[in-house]
Every structure is written in structure tokens, then in C-alpha cells.
Amino acid sequence: MAHDDVDEFGEYTHEEILQALVLRLLTSADLDELCDDVDLPQLTSDGQPVTITAAHTYRDAGVLTLDRGVWLELSDGSAFGLTVHISRRPRGEVTLRRQ
């Protein structure tokens, strides 16, 4: 593992990786496609599919919190924060491995 990998995620490795994963998953396809993939109904507004218009980490979105998470803005004007919160730390040492 390169030294830069550790610096990128800092001491909050779990939160940062889960935050990056959620951000990537929610921006990898349109919201209606993601709903179809998991057999959920699609959100619509005025007969049009609701889409994710912006997705940022809390830090990049300017959310005033020390928590890690993803801020989502949808085409219907709604906004949601998905917070990654640690309830318990891992028992052993955890390292990063690139695939």
C-alpha cells in the first residue's frame, strides 16, 4: 500500500471509504435505473423520473458537521443527507489494499 493511500483516508478510514462508496453507487446510474435494479418503485414528479442532480461529500457540499456522509440534491427540489456514523470501532488492525 502506498503512503498516499493512508493520507487520503486519514484516521477515519471506514467512514471515508463508505462515504466514497455511497457517492459512487448513487452517481453510477440514474435514480430510476438504480430503483429498477433493486426492484423498487421509481420516484416521479410531474410525470418525469426524479433524478439526482448533485451528489457531494458533506465536506464538499459545505454541510456543517464533523460527520462523514453524502449530500444528495434531487430534481424535485428535495435534498437528503446520508450520514456515515461509527457505532463501534473494529477490534483489530485494518489496512487498505488496492485491487
Results as ranks from 00 to 15, higher is better:
19 Q>I: 00
45 S>R: 13
79 A>G: 08
2 A>G: 06
60 D>S: 15
7 D>V: 09
43 L>P: 06
7 D>N: 09
66 L>R: 12
35 C>S: 13
84 V>G: 02
70 V>C: 09
22 V>F: 07
47 G>F: 13
45 S>E: 14
79 A>I: 04
73 E>C: 03
14 H>R: 00
46 D>N: 13
26 L>I: 05
16 E>T: 10
74 L>C: 14
48 Q>F: 11
51 T>R: 14
33 E>A: 09
33 E>M: 04
43 L>I: 06
39 D>P: 01
8 E>V: 02
51 T>D: 11
57 T>C: 12
89 R>H: 08
78 S>G: 12
76 D>P: 15
27 T>A: 03
65 T>L: 14
8 E>D: 10
1 M>V: 03
76 D>L: 11
71 W>K: 13
89 R>E: 05
34 L>V: 06
39 D>F: 08
62 G>N: 11
29 A>G: 04
20 A>E: 05
85 H>W: 04
80 F>E: 03
5 D>H: 06
13 T>G: 01
34 L>C: 07
16 E>N: 04
42 Q>L: 03
15 E>M: 04
58 Y>F: 15
25 L>C: 13
72 L>Q: 07
20 A>K: 08
37 D>L: 10
45 S>D: 15
54 A>H: 15
69 G>D: 12
9 F>A: 05
89 R>D: 08
63 V>W: 13
55 A>D: 11
38 V>T: 07
3 H>W: 01
67 D>C: 15
13 T>I: 12
98 R>D: 04
9 F>Y: 03
17 I>L: 14
66 L>P: 01
73 E>I: 06
4 D>I: 02
37 D>V: 02
23 L>M: 04
69 G>S: 10
50 V>E: 10
54 A>W: 15
16 E>R: 08
18 L>Y: 10
59 R>F: 06
49 P>Q: 08
63 V>K: 14
82 L>W: 10
